[in-house]
């Protein structure tokens, strides 16, 4: 498989959210604001890239019996590195993300890609897979949060785009709207991208 194929697969064809239904919890939780989604997406992408590369680098020495413990350890370490880095250098963004940085550890996409790809492939391929998976995840988060923030707050990235005539839809701010939107997204992708017939 070429690098381009790996990237396209990770980003679109095998997109973690709409195809593998992984990382749904965070997709539901943080998508009420686009800024939160973008920062979460960047955090997950960075952790995916670093964890994928490290797991791939040590794959030939990692015993099968402890491989998942090692993967969790590596993922957790990178998440804590992200957390410390944000607190020290970007404190406002760190505050904005609150508990979600820590929750990256529990994001199933990271374990999914580590086990399914990085533990069996070369370092650079794992890097490309990390970039693609992270990008695919970020695109979905931004797509859902665009609709939620626009209708829920009348804004995009915090900037008011709908005037005072607009009545905010409270349902869009709350978690259930993310369920509806995600379901509609998966339906749309299955129908028009994968051409799945009912």
């Amino acid at each position: 498989m070429t690098k381009k194929d790996i990237f396209i697969n990770a980003t679109f064809k095998d997109n973690s959210i709409w195809r593998q239904i992984l990382g749904i919890c965070s997709a539901l939780a943080v998508t009420n604001l686009m800024l939160n989604s973008l920062i979460m997406g960047l955090g997950v992408t960075f952790t995916l890239i670093m964890a994928n590369m490290t797991i791939s680098l040590i794959r030939n020495w990692t015993p099968r019996s402890v491989r998942m413990m090692v993967q969790v350890l590596i993922i957790a370490a990178y998440v804590i590195i992200v957390d410390i880095f944000l607190k020290a250098n970007m404190p406002l963004i760190s505050k904005q993300l609150g508990p979600y940085v820590g929750l990256i550890i529990t994001n199933c996409i990271l374990m999914g890609r580590a086990e399914a790809f990085a533990s069996k492939n070369k370092v650079f391929d794992s890097f490309v897979d990390g970039v693609g998976s992270g990008l695919g995840y970020t695109i979905v988060l931004l797509g859902i949060s665009f609709v939620r923030e626009l209708f829920g707050f009348g804004s995009i990235f915090g900037f008011k785009v709908l005037g005072s005539w607009w009545t905010n839809w409270s349902i869009m701010v709350m978690a259930p709207s993310a369920f509806f939107l995600l379901a509609m997204l998966i339906w749309g992708v299955n129908t028009y991208y994968y051409k799945v017939k009912a």
């Binding site: 020495w61 990692t62 015993p63 099968r64 019996s65 402890v66 413990m69 090692v70 350890l73 590596i74 370490a77 804590i80 590195i81 410390i84």
Partner: peptide, 22 residues
């Protein structure tokens, strides 16, 4: 890699390494 001690030693090295970095 299949020996009894290898996974324990490997895990210990990883824990020490990453804890040290952090």
């Amino acid at each position: 890699k299949d020996s009894f001690l290898y996974p324990i030693v490997f895990m210990l090295i990883m824990v020490v390494l990453f804890t040290g970095i952090l």
